[in-house]
Structures are given as structure tokens and as C-alpha cells.
Nucleic acid binder design. Structure first.
Lengths: 211, 211
DNA sequence: CTTCTAATGTACGAACTGGTACGTTAGTTA
DNA sequence: TAACTAACGTACCAGTTCGTACATTAGAAG
């Protein structure tokens, strides 16, 4: 309750946050079973004991990591404003935001991969996540409705399918960067090709939607 | 050299194959560090000792798994014949073959994820893989050339980019099945939606390519 | 200043896990 | 049938890794 931040040697909140920060990197990089509790502790200014003190165990720590990662990305998505754009431009804008998100949060992408590798069994235990998650799709649905009413878009498309189309392109580019680089000698995240792929995604989606 | 197959108690080739079969499932399901050598051995008709006898260690076994998985999928790709189809139909056919492949080989998809999680560091040690891998893209490039010559396709598209477009859609659907199911309550592999997604992919790609 | 507790650190144990030393057997060859 | 080798099995070790018992301290409360 005091204001002497920065010099306190005991700060529960700070310790918790730091543990989750480091754990996010560790789990993203090595997977659930590959991640080492000792390693996470070592890269923190505190000790392994604190992980068990605050979180209870490796699994609960992973849960905390997952929950925070999703909460962050959904919060960012909610800030997008597309109402002042025409439907085509709005869809393109949404695709670009998703594109940028994926590029800016590689650790998140990796966590999604880790969670899928475990059949999403942890995610089901975090009820809060499901509530958070419709925001991006809801935005998209609104835009699609406008486009249909206007007569610009075909009217047999589902918002979730379009979201999947966009996500898959963005996800793949980040997630499979390494095998793609090894097999085809092309770095999908090379800065010089960034604009090209961003435009390509927009063309792809709007092209599909148009009547 | 004898012909008494089926009753031999000692069959090196059979033992090797069986180990790789089981290891493929184990590595795909649990990841590299999550996979247990003891578990692989237990699910085989032989013992852990044989894994070390034939492969040398966990890492070399993983390499053998990876190499065989890629060899299989590339071999299947090579069998596609698109020369008798017009460019648009041929592209659609290639997309569908990729789509079907991904659906039929979930273990392969998971291995790709596992390998990317490790920055594809093992793949670089399997030189044979890189040679194998251009087949799908070469086929596609030929079709794109025909389409351009014919005037049907835009002429600013790269075959590798189109291949990426197709792969990303197919990959995502299989790889992220579980988180998608948990977050949006939609099973991307549900049989009743299979045809829908297959058509959607074809529309998407051919729509993008057309002038 | 004393007391009390949340927060923190140290040291260690039990189970797991990759790997190996050593012995055995099937099947081939002379 | 005797000798030889590839193929196989058992038992075990050494290092790792999650988790915990126990001791300690910072800082708030009275």
C-alpha cells in the first residue's frame, strides 16, 4: 500500500509477473514437457520455491501463462475501429490487424501450438478464455453483414470461416517459418517480403468475399 | 535371404519398421522431449535395447521418423497428374490433393509442428529432404506458367506463395483443431463440413489467381 | 520496540529417464 | 554339428527434474 515502488525488496505482484514473463518464453520455446521449472526459476530474480508458493506447480503456472497470453491478444483486438470504413476496406483492415498481431507475438503463436499438441486440454479449464474470444469474430460478422446489405459481398459466407481463412495464413507464416526456410530456402518473416504478404492476404480475402 | 516370412522370430527389417511406426505416433503425440524411449519400446514387440542397437539414440530415431514421414508424403504428391486439366481445374486439383493429404496424415502435421518448435534444427541434418521437396511446387509452377500463357492467370504470382496459401489453409485446419474447437465450439475436421472447406479452398486460390 | 505473517531462500529426496554393460539365442556357414 | 555372428533381452546406472521440508527475513501492525 506504500508508494515506494522500485526499491522494495519484497513485492509479491512483481514476483508473480516476472515468473509469468519468463515462463511464457520458456513454455513457448520448449513446449510443456520441454520447459524446466528450474530453468524458469534461474532466469528470474527469485527462486523455484516461489513458483510453487504462488502457482502450486508446473501445470498451474502453464495455465497462468496461457490465460494471460490470450487475455492480452483479445484486449488488443478489441481496440480496432472499423465502422468508419467501407466493408471491403474494413475486412482488409481486420486482416491486416491479425497479420500484425501474429508477427508481433511469436510467443503467443507458439503457445497455441503447444496447447494444440496437448489437445487443448488445459484451455478447457480456463473458462474465462471462451468468453473473451468471440470479439474478433463479432467485429468481422458486423462488417460482413454491412457488405451483404450493400450488395458488395456474396451472402453465403460465414464469419467464422473467414476468420479461419485469415488466421490460417497469418499463423502458418509465423509457426512454420523454420521448416519452410529449411525446405524451400525462403524466410517467410523476411522484412522485405512483409508488405507483399500483407497485401496478398488482403487481396485473397476480399477477392473471395466479393460477388 | 530365405522366404519364410511371417514365422521368423528374427527379422531386422521388421523390427526397424515397427520401431519407426510406433515412434512416429509417440513423437507426433508428445513432442520430442515429451516422447519416452521406454514408452516406444513398450509399445513394440521388442525392447528398448533394440532402439539403441538400430538407431543409436533418441535423436537419431527422431531423425529416422522425420525422414520417412516426409519421404512418404512427397512420394504421394508425385503421383498427381494435372497435364490433362485446364489450368484452373489443375490448380483446384492440386489444392484438393494437398487438402486430402493433410487430413489423412495428422501425425505428419504434428511432426511438422514439433520440428518447427525446435527451429527445424534436425531437418537440416537430413540433406535428402531438401532434394525431395520441390516436387509439389514444381508441379504448381508448371500449371501457373500454362495459365499465364493462356491469359487466364495474373502474371505477378509466385508458385511458392501459392503453395504457401494452400498449405496454410490445410495445415491450420488440422493443426489447430483443438484450440479452435475449445474457443469457437467448431470442429474443423467435422465430416459434414469437409466438402465445404475443400470447395472453399479451391474458390479461394483460383479466385486469387484469375485476372 | 515487539510481534506477527507474508514472502523468500536452502537443501534435499523420490521418481523418472536416457543410455549401457553384459549375457543369451536364432540362424547361417563350413 | 561346431563355430560364428547378427539379433535380441535383462538389469542396472547416472543424471535430471519436479516437488517439498525447513529455516529465515522484510515489513506491517499495535
Amino acid at each position: 500500500m506504500t508508494a515506494q515502488t522500485g526499491e522494495r525488496r519484497r513485492d509479491a505482484e512483481r514476483t508473480r509477473t516476472e515468473i509469468v514473463d519468463v515462463a511464457t518464453e520458456e513454455f513457448a520455446e520448449r513446449g510443456y514437457s520441454g520447459a524446466r521449472v528450474d530453468e524458469i526459476a534461474a532466469r528470474t530474480r527469485t527462486t523455484k520455491r516461489m513458483i510453487y508458493y504462488y502457482f502450486g506447480g508446473k501445470e498451474q503456472l502453464y495455465l497462468a501463462v496461457l490465460e494471460r497470453a490470450y487475455a492480452e491478444i483479445r484486449a488488443a483486438e478489441r481496440t480496432v475501429d472499423v465502422d468508419h470504413l467501407d466493408p471491403v476496406a474494413a475486412v482488409r483492415r481486420l486482416a491486416e490487424v491479425t497479420f500484425d498481431h501474429h508477427e508481433a507475438h511469436p510467443a503467443f503463436i507458439k503457445l497455441v501450438g503447444v496447447e494444440n499438441a496437448q489437445h487443448a486440454k488445459h484451455m478447457n479449464h480456463v473458462a474465462r478464455l471462451v468468453d473473451l474470444n468471440s470479439s474478433a469474430v463479432d467485429l468481422l460478422r458486423g462488417v460482413l453483414d454491412r457488405g451483404r446489405a450493400e450488395g458488395t459481398f456474396r451472402d453465403d459466407v460465414d464469419a467464422l470461416d473467414v476468420h479461419m481463412m485469415i488466421s490460417s495464413f497469418c499463423f502458418f507464416r509465423v509457426a512454420n517459418r523454420h521448416t519452410w526456410g529449411a525446405l524451400f530456402d525462403r524466410d517467410l518473416l523476411d522484412e522485405s517480403r512483409r508488405g507483399h504478404y500483407r497485401t496478398m492476404l488482403g487481396d485473397l480475402v476480399t477477392g473471395y468475399l466479393r460477388k
